[in-house]
Write a protein that binds this DNA or RNA. Structure first.
Length: 346
DNA sequence: CGGAGTCTCTGT
DNA sequence: ACAGAGACTCCG
């Protein structure tokens, strides 16, 4: 028994019946407050004769990501993943995956698709599906609703999508890119000198829609993990202009994020030798332009076009947005058109 | 890449 | 009659 000799006796009543509990606790609990750390992992204490509150939060490992689940909010607190060139290569297809209730969670604590349906909010991945092209199972796992938060759809497919793309592109400069993502509930409404945190809750499950999302990016090379380049970002969960490409606009310090989340991320990271990602990265945390993404969309549309009409609409979309055609797209269009001609002739 | 909504079919 | 799965179409 790892207790001291300073046992005390507690007495009380439960439903009229007398109970007597002998409680032993370490000497340091008797010390003055502030002079020593209070041990919190001891289940017995004078103030908690029936045991200290237990925490339902749990950390779960999936095929490609690990998350800490917030039972009360029915969404993750943080989600961790590691990107490499290899993990981004492959044929896994998100069309094969389905959003679904996570049966690994405690009974009744998972959000449902019904909560999100017609809510006006999209189902935003924290660990991104596109980060697991190499493994269909890993991609499928990201579709568990344990990895999902209510996200503004324009933010999701726009700025946040560009941020995820930025993380993937970092694998061209670093062996490994470690990413932690999660929701935040921050002041988003100020009236006079009063500040408010206002957020919607959706569905029968009353799933809260976060005001912000955060992402911590730590990129390093295999041989020198002590020279990690790291940065953290807090992005409001609202549409963000396509013109914004400076990720530094949303950069915060790790210390700041610690106070916002209550989690100390990367506690082992030696801060003396790490560098700021937005300085080390040769792109200086500059996101790809929206035009580049439009070009990418067009490429896909042409590639899977079933008729000339599909190609035309893709082209019109680009012209509407004043996006310059690059050579790859032009040759892709030519290729597709001859392909379609052969199809009609046969 | 990131999503949504609608329709049809099927099983209870 | 209603719920879920799958195919299909659409958007940024």
């Amino acid at each position: 028994m790892a207790t001291s000799n300073f046992g005390i006796l507690a007495k009380g009543f439960i439903s009229g019946a007398v109970f007597t509990v002998s409680i032993s606790y370490p000497l340091y609990l008797q010390q003055k407050r502030g002079t020593a750390p209070v041990k919190t992992d001891d289940a017995r204490s004078p103030l908690f004769p029936f045991g200290k509150p237990t925490d339902l939060r749990q950390v779960i490992d999936y095929t490609g990501h690990t998350l800490c689940y917030d039972v009360a909010r029915k969404q993750p607190l943080w989600v961790s993943e590691i990107l490499t060139k290899e993990s981004l290569k492959g044929r896994a297809n998100r069309k094969q995956s389905k959003f679904r209730v996570d049966d690994q969670l405690p009974e009744g604590t998972s959000a449902t698709n019904g909560d999100y349906h017609k809510s006006g909010w999209s189902r935003g991945h924290m660990a991104a599906a596109g980060n697991f092209k190499s493994n269909q199972q890993a991609m499928d796992d990201t579709f568990y609703l344990s990895n999902i938060v209510p996200q503004n759809i324009d933010n999701n497919s726009g700025f946040w999508n560009r941020l995820e793309t930025y993380c993937r592109d970092l694998t061209e400069q670093f062996d490994k890119v470690h990413v932690i993502s999660g929701p935040l509930y921050q002041v988003n409404d100020i009236v006079g000198d009063k500040k408010f945190v206002k957020y919607e809750v959706i569905g029968d499950g009353r799933v809260p829609a976060p005001t912000h999302l955060y992402k911590i990016v730590a990129a390093f090379n295999e041989g020198s993990p002590e020279r990690t380049a790291v940065a953290a970002f807090v992005v409001p969960n609202i549409p963000i202009s396509r013109e914004v490409s400076e990720l530094t606009k949303y950069e915060v310090s790790l210390e700041k994020l610690k106070s916002l989340t209550g989690f100390s991320f990367h506690p082992q990271l030696p801060s003396q030798t790490t560098t700021n990602l937005c300085v080390s990265d040769r792109n200086s945390c500059k996101l790809k332009s929206w035009e580049e993404l439009e070009l990418y969309f067009a490429m896909k549309k042409v590639k899977y076009a079933k008729s000339q009409k599909d190609i035309d609409t893709a082209v019109v979309t680009l012209k509407d947005n004043h996006v310059k055609f690059d050579q790859k797209l032009l040759s892709q269009i030519e290729k597709k058109q001859t392909e379609l001609r052969h199809a009609t002739n046969a």
